[in-house]
Amino acid sequence: MKKVIPPAVGLVLALCFPLVTTDPFILSLLIEAGVWAIAVMGFVAILRTGEFSLGQAAFMAIGGYASALVTINLGIPFWFGLVFAGIMAALVALALGVVVLRLGGIYFAIVTLVFGEIVRIVALNWQGLTRGATGLTPSAPGTIHIGSITIDFIASKVPFYYVIVLLVLVAAVVFWRADRSRLGRIFRSIASNETLAEHMGIHLMKYKVIIFVIAGFFTGIAGAFFCHFTLFMGPTTFDVWDSIMILIMGIVGGTSSVVLGPIIGALVLSAGGAYLTSALMVGMKPLVYGIIVIVVVVLLPGGLVDLGRYISRAPRISSLQGVKRHKKRGN
């Protein structure tokens, strides 16, 4: 039971936040942070199988376009647009993953980076579908009436805020369960020693593709949500820089936890960074981010999630007793 308390407290705080303030600017920052948190969870989950995806923003773009197109052209409601976006991104992840995950290592990183550019270029040039650089203007979800309560997505940011809290919660539960179940053990095995894992009967491709597809699904939903929130979807809404941002948020937040690290990283860099920028001056964003990244990487290589452990000075592996330390070998 003890383990349930911190996340539950976090959730209650998140749910109560609009009681503190409904300032649209602050809520927008948090909503964006939620979008990034989902994408970063996907990135970190893939990273924890030992693969480095530099094209996660491309799945946000695919999700964004998928949802924007079906809601605009077919008049499908926002909610189904979200699900459709997730499925489309997952299918693309499946097709890409089956081919590209074979490469592994740095080659995988390069191909995913290139994939992000391909998506951008296709979106820019496929005028008939995406309207090129003009972009699409997806609409916010329609007003919902439940009895006497009216939920209006245009008048206030609060409904969007609750939707993203719910989406982050669902993604968090899925990634957390995947990490704590046998899948997590398999992912850790693969990340730790692929050759050994394979010789012990683990089909590497199967599990790498599984997590790549799950990550793609949620990343696509995050992208779709974002474009309905900002009411615009264009080729540069999610580009290579955003993939790099996902990477940076993952590293700053810390990759030792699959849920908390991404949420912290997204809050600090997306919400915190944007707030700082607006308070200082335009154009400071990359500088602020750069400083945060350098400080974290130098002082806290485990990311911000390690802060608590660092302060309490608890040993990272508490089970070293009993190891006879022999002379250090040269490997």
Partner: peptide, 13 residues
């Protein structure tokens, strides 16, 4: 050792 028990698993993912 536990990680290598993968092939003994009867339950699925």
């Amino acid at each position: 050792t536990t990680r290598c028990c993968y092939l003994r698993c009867e339950t699925n993912s």
